[in-house]
Structure formats: C-alpha cells, structure tokens
Amino acid sequence: MLLIHCPYCDETLPEVEFTYAGQAHVVRPADPSSTSDSEWEAFLFLRENPKGAHYERWRHLHGCGRFFNAVRDTVSDRFLTTYAAGAPRPDLSDLIERAK
C-alpha cells in the first residue's frame, strides 16, 4: 500500500484514500469537432507506458475530493512528486536527481 502526498491537503496519506485516474496532461481539445480522426484517436486511446517516470492523475476520493497530478516511477512504485491539476509538467531530471 503506497503513501501518497495530496498537494491540496498537504498531507502524505495511505493509498486507500485515493483512486487512480489515468495518464496526466492528456488535454481535451478545445474544439473536438474540428479534430481529425487520428487526433481524436490519440486523445481517446493512445497512452504512454513507460518503464520509469510516469505522469499520471490521482483523486483524493476519500479526502478533499480533488484530482491532482503525480509523477510515479513504474519500476519502484515511488512517487517522485505530486502537484495540483493544471500546474505545468515538472522537470523530470530535477525530480530524478532529488529522488537520489
């Protein structure tokens, strides 16, 4: 069972309070009707599957209720950081350096 830092509550809490919500930074096009089939396919279905740092979303369902973003290492299952929804993608090399 992981420990997850909720950026809104500013507390590190057990995983049972959270639910996973898929890859982060997948932006819904502002005008979906003007997207091509392949653009829409990419938005709907194409996802990263990295060995290592993964940008993903979680929701503090049994807590503040907020969706937020996280970078998790899919090998070690460690969270490198978590940050508010809408915040820019953090720099990976910094995070990996800090994790060491």
Partner: peptide
C-alpha cells in the same frame, strides 16, 4: 488507515 495521531484535537478530516 491514516494515522489518527495526525488529526489534532479540534480538527477533523474526511477519510475512509
């Protein structure tokens, strides 16, 4: 599952 000691007297939390 969370540490009850982390909730100070006079506070509260939504949790499971």
């Amino acid at each position: 599952a969370r540490d009850i000691d982390g909730i100070a007297v006079g506070e509260g939390r939504r949790t499971a």
